[in-house]
């Protein structure tokens, strides 16, 4: 646990910077609220203030900035506001809310627990499709010269198209042929997550050196024996590394897929937050997404550690 100290230091530095940054970011709203409460601010009308620079407003009104960290609909909500929002939209909503799981028996559609579940479902389904497809492609690329030459360039091109541009088209096309619900989002997730798996797996399957391949030739081993006994086990460390990247990409894909659909999910929360100026809601959804990604990467890391240990390759 010797990582704890540095991690906490970095977190404290970020939080400190965040609180400082909230002052100039929210200065307009803070001063307007202060003016309404009867405090004298310079300049004394909102129009003049909107034309003034943030920093000059800060320095002209140093004693009227007390509200910087509690502004409603702040441009940059402060950390404790975001944490409160996360608490309110998870624990409080589910335990005390009328529609929460305690009172209604199902997750509230206003809670981040529910929306995380929606996103998580699409993420995991998309990741499984993407990883499976990626592994198959990698095997094809390693064993077939034709595939090596034809598939890899397309795989690379596929990742150069901005997913934000592509996602609505995928959704429209899939909806029009009757595929709705979780599937279109999962397809976008798969689209983003197959690529790191292909790249990592190709590298891993090609990692055995000449000597090890020659050794199998001296045994007159078949191609499938070479795959199962040498190439596949040798690729495991590479596979897990790319699975970690893949699942994070998969989450991004699911969120992007939720933006145009607006039927729940963290992406939908982020977009509705920005429609209604609910910055705290955006930040809360963002934080929950980050926590989800960290958890999923940690789970894969745990499986990796166990698998490699069983294989005698613990690092």
């Amino acid at each position: 646990m010797n990582k704890l100290g540095p991690v906490i230091t970095v977190i404290l530095a970020i939080v400190a910077f965040w609180y400082v940054a909230a002052v100039p970011m929210n200065v307009q709203e803070t001063l307007t609220a202060a003016e309404r409460a009867g405090v004298a601010v310079t300049p004394d009308n909102a129009r003049a203030r909107s034309e003034a620079g943030r920093w000059s407003l800060v320095f002209q009104n140093l004693d009227a900035l007390g509200g910087s960290w509690s502004v409603d609909r702040a441009r940059l909500p402060s950390p404790h506001q975001v944490l409160t929002e996360i608490y309110n939209s998870t624990w409080d909503e589910e335990v005390n809310g009328r529609r929460g799981i305690v009172n209604s028996g199902s997750f509230s559609n206003r809670s981040l627990v529910y929306h995380s579940g929606v996103t998580l479902g699409a993420t995991v389904l998309g990741f499984l499709i993407g990883a499976g497809f990626g592994i198959l492609l990698a095997v094809g690329i390693v064993y077939s010269r034709t595939m090596d030459r034809s598939v890899m360039p397309w795989a690379i091109v596929s990742q150069t198209i901005p997913i934000v541009a592509l996602a609505p088209m995928i959704i429209v096309v899939l909806y029009s042929i009757g595929i709705g619900g979780m599937m279109p989002k999962a397809v976008i997730s798969a689209y983003l997550s197959f690529f790191p798996v292909v790249v990592g797996m190709v590298k891993g399957l090609r990692s055995p050196d000449h000597m090890q391949l020659d050794l199998l030739r001296t045994y007159n081993a078949s191609k499938s024996q070479g795959f199962w006994k040498l190439r596949l086990p040798a690729s495991m460390p590479y596979l897990f590394t790319s699975l970690k990247i893949g699942i994070a990409a998969s989450l991004v894909g699911a969120i992007v897929g939720e933006l145009p659909v607006q039927r729940g999910g963290l992406g939908a929360r982020m977009l509705s937050g920005s429609y209604y100026g609910q910055t705290e809601q955006i930040w809360a959804a963002l934080f929950v997404a980050a926590i989800l990604a960290a958890l999923m990467v940690a789970i894969i890391g745990w499986i990796e550690a166990r698998t490699l240990k069983r294989m005698g390759m613990a690092v």
Partner: peptide
């Protein structure tokens, strides 16, 4: 080779780490 007539020992042991 196909009749597995010989065993071959390389410069490095080349044991599978797993």
């Amino acid at each position: 080779r196909k009749a597995r007539a010989y065993g071959y020992v390389f410069q490095a042991a080349g044991l599978y780490p797993w």
